[in-house]
């Protein structure tokens, strides 16, 4: 009984850390325009819209976070093997991983912008200086929390995978959950703020991203402020629920029916989310209604 209570505590802590990680991850990637919205930041100068948005095309979010978290975990493992206590080791490992992330962010921005010189897009050094540090700060939060989850899973819950492999697995999962949830909110709702609300961006409008802010010219910190309102927390909730429910069903129900308990609970959770999803979909169809006359181009 005591071990189950301990397990539930670790599970709750891991879920909470994962929520923070997801929120920080999405805010970080939106400040850097990483992931799919990046294509529009890249496209804008070619359409004649010179901007001051940070364009940090390191890789898609899942592989990039796969590296940051695996690297943080690997370095933390190395420091622990050198007899440094785990908390300090995780902090040091995450800090070094963030250094790598920051360097990659600068080279990505310089590379993409320099390759756009034909369209007159200048490199803004102040963008580089102010945005990189902010993304590094967010990335540190995301990496530190995720590496901590991995350490808890490995050391406290006894998962067989070593720390670096867990870092790889959960890093990619973090990037996948964060990019899936957060990207549309930044890509559609923020970059194309001037387009009609409640409709997709017409393909003809591609590249015409919003470049001016409430005062002055928009930079990516304004975007971080925006996505911290919904995209970030939703990504955090998404990743937090994934980690929490995955651990919870295993820790509590694994012993029931030789493993079948966790399976049944997992299937029930999937069905619950399916019902919620269907409810939201129908709710939207009923309340928003169709867009006037049915278009006929569907193929």
């Amino acid at each position: 009984m005591e071990s189950i209570v301990f397990g539930i505590g670790i599970t709750a802590l891991a879920g909470a850390l994962a929520t923070v990680a997801g929120a920080a991850e999405n805010t970080e990637s939106d400040i850097g325009s990483q992931g799919d919205p990046n294509s529009q930041v890249q496209l804008a100068p070619q359409m004649g819209y010179i901007h001051r948005i940070f364009n940090k095309a390191i890789a898609g979010e899942p592989p990039a976070y796969g590296l940051w978290v695996a690297l943080g975990a690997g370095l933390a493992w190395a420091f622990m093997a050198m007899q440094i206590n785990p908390i300090l080791a995780i902090v040091l490992g995450s800090a070094l991983a963030v250094f790598v992330q920051g360097v990659y962010a600068t080279t990505a921005y310089l590379g993409r912008i320099a390759s756009l010189s034909k369209f007159g897009q200048p490199v803004f050094i102040d963008v580089l200086k102010s945005m990189t540090t902010v993304t590094m700060a967010h990335a540190f939060v995301a990496i530190f929390t995720t590496v901590t989850i991995c350490h808890l899973i490995n050391a406290a819950l006894g998962h067989p995978f070593p720390l670096p492999l867990l870092g790889l697995v959960w890093g990619i999962a973090l990037g996948a959950a964060g990019s899936a949830t957060g990207n549309p909110f930044y890509g559609k709702e923020r970059q194309y703020q001037t387009q009609k609300f409640g409709a997709g961006v017409p393909i003809a409008a591609s590249g015409n991203i919003v470049r001016y802010a409430e005062a002055g010219e928009r930079n990516s910190l304004d975007n971080g402020w925006f996505s911290a309102k919904l995209g970030g927390p939703a990504s955090g909730l998404c990743f937090g629920l994934i980690v929490f429910l995955e651990l919870w069903r295993t820790v509590i129900f694994e012993k029931i029916g030789a493993g079948w308990g966790a399976i049944v609970v997992g299937i029930i959770i999937i069905l619950v989310f399916t019902v919620i999803d269907r409810y939201i979909e129908v709710w939207a169809r009923k309340n928003y209604g169709p867009y006037g006359e049915p278009a006929k181009e569907g193929s």
Binding site: P63, G66, Y104, F161, P164, L168
Partner: peptide, 13 residues
């Protein structure tokens, strides 16, 4: 220790 997983991602990126 699966440090090879770290080398994997370091090189892959």
């Amino acid at each position: 220790s699966s440090l090879i997983a770290v080398a994997f991602m370091l090189g892959g990126i």
